[in-house]
Amino acid sequence: MSPTPSPQPTHATAADGVRIAHQVRGAGRPLLLLSGQSNSHHWWDPVLADFLARFRTITLDYRGTGASDKPDEPYSTEGFAEDVVAVLDHLAVERADVYGTSMGGRVAQWLAARHPDRVGRLVLGCTSPGGPNGVERDADVDAALTDRDPARARAALVDLMYTPAWTLTHPGPYATLGDPAMPGYARRRHRLASTRHDAWAVLPDIVAPTLVVHGAEDRFNPTANAALLAERIPGARLALLEGARHAYFEEFRATASPLVLDFLG
């Protein structure tokens, strides 16, 4: 389902020696694309072509996913952001525009706040500030996602990602449901990293021009988080996509990609 064949990954070395796989395609201004929790760079496969004509796209496999190393040790969104810096350093990219969705948006918050010189324009999609100031999803959503029946849990995740009307005509496979080759321990550590994210205190430090995008019907990461981010980040713009759920960038691609491209200029 990849729009173009994935290039052979190269590896950057993080500060702790962990190797981080990354992929570079296209030409032009650098655009870093950060995927969701427990996902490799394949998260972006359905929409990557929208950005290749104008940007040198950089994707990566978080530690624990894809072709990156998978240490069995605590992960964090702050740590993932430092892995991103290692990738940018390896590629000699001084500054990139950044588009992070879901957990990738959490990682992007730390990147923009802690390394403002490395981020040009910033897009935060279907994400949250986390911590006590973030809006948690309903308990029934978590219960459905942790159902002991894997088929029911997967069906619940698909329903949170896409509308029923869309899945009727797009039966999958879906690139947003997690890296199937991830070890179980890495999947658990990704989940903890995402749920423990709390960047509220540093959001006002973000100086990059910022666009916050969210599906208006997102229950996986409640839509109310979008307004919190837009209010907390100086000068941020907010765009809600009516009818969209968590994977707005794929199902509502015809609206979302032009919106992001226009903002990136």
Rank of each mutant, 00 (worst) to 15 (best):
P129A: 11
G134M: 02
A113R: 09
A112W: 02
Q109D: 05
G120K: 07
L91A: 10
A92C: 00
A108D: 14
L122C: 08
A86K: 13
L91N: 06
V84T: 13
A113I: 12
R121T: 08
Q109G: 04
L88F: 07
H115P: 03
V93W: 05
W110A: 00
S128E: 07
L88Y: 01
L91F: 00
T77Y: 13
G130N: 03
G120N: 04
A92E: 15
V93L: 02
E78H: 13
G131P: 06
C126M: 12
Q109R: 03
G131M: 04
A96P: 03
V85S: 06
F80P: 04
A108S: 13
P116E: 01
R114F: 09
E78T: 14
G105N: 01
T101C: 15
P129H: 00
Y99T: 05
Y99W: 10
G130W: 02
D97T: 03
T77I: 07
F80H: 13
G131V: 00
A86F: 07
T77D: 12
M103L: 15
E94S: 10
V119M: 00
T101A: 15
L124R: 00
G131N: 02
R106F: 10
A108C: 11
P129S: 14
T127N: 01
V84I: 15
V85T: 04
D89M: 08
T101N: 15
G104M: 10
G125I: 02
R114V: 02
A81Q: 11
T77P: 10
V98L: 09
P129I: 04
A86V: 08
V93R: 00
V87W: 09
A96C: 08
V98F: 02
G131D: 09
L91G: 09
H90Y: 01
G100Y: 03
T101M: 14
V107Q: 00
G120V: 00
S128K: 02
E78A: 14
G125R: 02
